[in-house]
Amino acid sequence: MIRKKSRREESLDHAELARLLPAPGDPQLSLDRHLLLEEHLMNEIQCTAPAPAPAASRRPRRALLIGVPVTAAALAGVFAFTMLTGSRGATTAATPPPVEAPVVRIEPGSTAQLASTVQRIAAAALARKTPEPGPGQYIYIKSEVSYLSVSHTDTNPSKAMVQPVHIRESWRSPDGRKGWLDEPGYQPKGGVTLDSDVTRDSYNETKTLPTDPAALLKKIYARTNDESDRDQQAFTAIGDIVIEQLVPAGTSAALYRAAAKIPGVVVVDHAKDAAGRDGIALARVDQQSGERTEWIFDRKTYAYLGSRGVQVKQFEDIKPGTVIQRTAVLQRAVVDAEKQRPGEQGAV
């Protein structure tokens, strides 16, 4: 099968495991049990791994998918090892088993309404009042998310499996150096730190970006390289900023206007976020993976709702129409302390 590799994972020393473990038998596990054990294994690896690199606060992208054939017998053996030795890190809440990925009709994109749609999105962003975090405060984002778990199962290669839609909460300081992530079932119980020396895409860094779309796009392209499609890299870079951050109004409007200048960006009339809200989307197809990333906006207020990744071209075992990732922003706020939620004392 193909498993989504988390940036938090570290490679296992299979030779060492083979030395410590007796030869596994050949248990006949059901598919559900197989997948559940695999999810538990991945969480155990995350908990016992060394402290993650700063980039771990971002969700892994499709480019990080790798082929890892895992037999039920080998998986059961490693699972037994982790249960016997115990985790050296924090306890991880039980990970829900993955579910079959939804498959939707692929709605064609168009550039016919691109200029007018982006103008409405930018105007709405400029009109929206955005709280400005101060020193010692945190940007709180609450989302519903679902990401690809495995691209197929051994028993049914035609079915891609995804995480059930679940809650993800993040806290980040304005300078990006302090933070916390709570994602029950997919992170250690209680959450993990996002403390980092990396300040790119922080609130403070984002508010210094040019508000002229052409100048902003030039700066975005300066971050790309020649290793893959630079236009796709630019589109992804803008998405990384807006998906889980509080962006100043002027910068937000400029980012969307800049995105409209990227070749291949289209409007998709109907797209649903992870919360099931139907909206209009700005989208672009990654020609390498065949995935169309859609940024979804409310069709009346043009507020950003969330994102969706739809496979529009066959890629390995993932068939066209498969929804491989969904997000929905439920709440953005400024709070006075890490782990504090809006409505509690000090929240804005």
Rank of each mutant, 00 (worst) to 15 (best):
G176K: 02
S307Q: 14
S6Q: 07
I141F: 04
V165E: 12
P60H: 03
T199S: 13
V268F: 05
P188A: 07
G191K: 07
L35I: 00
Q46A: 10
L194K: 06
R128L: 10
A122Y: 04
E169R: 15
Q287G: 06
P210A: 12
D286N: 15
W171M: 03
I45V: 15
L181S: 04
A90D: 11
E344Q: 15
M83P: 00
V348T: 13
G25E: 11
A51P: 08
I2K: 09
T117G: 04
V310Y: 07
L65R: 08
A51I: 06
A80E: 15
D32S: 14
R332N: 06
G25H: 05
R257I: 00
P164R: 07
S87E: 05
E39G: 12
R62Y: 11
A15T: 05
G321K: 04
S289I: 02
V99H: 10
K4A: 15
A337Y: 00
A49W: 03
P52E: 02
A237T: 12
Q311I: 03
R326L: 15
S149N: 14
A49S: 15
I45T: 12
R177F: 03
V310H: 03
G343V: 10
S158W: 09
R105V: 15
S202V: 04
L20F: 07
P164G: 05
E10K: 09
R3F: 11
E205M: 11
T48M: 14
V242C: 09
M161R: 13
R59I: 10
A281V: 03
Q345C: 00
A94Y: 08
M42R: 07
D13Q: 08
P96C: 08
T206I: 13
R277G: 00
T130V: 15
G86P: 09
R105L: 12
A115T: 12
G136N: 05
V334S: 05
L75Y: 03
V348G: 14
G239E: 06
T224Q: 08
S146D: 01
P263R: 06
R308Q: 15
P24A: 08
P131I: 02
A214G: 06
R61Y: 02
A18K: 03
P213H: 10
A127D: 14
S110V: 01
A63G: 14
D269W: 02
A258E: 09
S143V: 00
Q331I: 00
T193C: 10
I262K: 07
N204T: 08
Q46N: 11
V266S: 01
H152W: 13
I324R: 03
C47V: 12
G191N: 12
P50F: 03
